[in-house]
Design a protein around this nucleic acid. Structure first.
Lengths: 156, 156
DNA sequence: CTTATTTAGTTTAGTAACTAAAATATTTAA
DNA sequence: TTAAATATTTTAGTTACTAAACTAAATAAG
């Protein structure tokens, strides 16, 4: 790989870092507008994506301890964003049911500007171009998952 | 825009959300490996990007209050990642000097796997394809900055 | 069976990092 | 030379976290 490729790579890294930074900051501001902390907003997204699940499962997907999950669910429940419902099959368990409609009505208006403009942006690319972008995203996501897993398992 | 475009858009949104989620999680794990919290890692990145600056400027770019910046700098200084240096021109000011070498030596090894694999991934795209991906990133970053600014200024 | 162990979630005690406001030190303006 | 403004730190109070103790329910073992 030649020198100009290395320069390009450095620029590309900067561009993708800027993208990630902007994304994190934007999501924090969105969360604030909806009366949530950045962390609670992120976790709510995970809970909605997963769908109905137990407190234990939420601890796993969020990486939080049991006690922290209790607090998280307390806060989200108080805002009507999830509901607790005891599992009749196993009465130790508590099913956490995301209230998707409520979440949509809370977050939707805040997201609408972003979605509109993103739609316009992707429309400005041809189908072939969009396929290239998507291919990059999917591959990069896979790499990040791998790196995360490797770091977690590394002894040091 | 036809129906199949809408479906594509929905899929694209999912893909880019997955990318952002993976990025956030990975950076938290990277921070942990380096003995930092996710927040401190993020702020250190901002401080390095900005270069030498005052505590007040750091409060602005991070969105933290003055007191929180004092605590942040205390923690980073204890780890040797920044240095405090009183400004001789204005002795109320404290210049915060990021110790880039130290940060590199701490974070570099943790990032190396990611950088290697990202390099391989981008190499698998042609120059024209890479230009398309970069163009998308830059435009999307601009949109996110705009949306963030609009939300911050919105009265509601 | 009925007692011990495991599992699920919550509660508690202690900690870390935040905000808002008061305090300190220095500079600029009156 | 005093008053006001600016830059940072300190303090007091809050929030959300972890680790460990606790409660309740299900499963296993003698």
């Amino acid at each position: 790989m030649g020198n100009s490729d290395d320069q390009w790579l450095e620029k590309f890294r900067q561009v993708s870092r800027d993208y990630s930074d902007a994304s994190v900051i934007m999501h924090e501001v969105i969360a604030g507008k909806a009366g949530l902390t950045g962390a609670d907003h992120k976790y709510l997204g995970l809970i909605i994506k997963k769908g109905e699940s137990t407190a234990g499962e939420i601890a796993e997907i969020t990486g939080l301890t049991g006690g922290a999950v209790t607090g998280l669910i307390d806060r989200l429940e108080k805002k009507g964003l999830v509901k607790r419902s005891p599992d009749p099959q196993d009465r130790r368990k508590v099913m956490i049911i995301p209230q998707v409609k409520k979440a949509m009505s809370l977050l939707g208006p805040v997201f609408s500007d972003l979605q509109e403009r993103t739609k316009d942006l992707v429309s400005s690319f041809s189908a072939e171009e969009r396929e290239i972008i998507e291919r990059y995203f999917v591959a990069a996501t896979g790499i990040m998952h791998d790196v995360t897993r490797n770091l977690r398992n590394k002894p040091k």
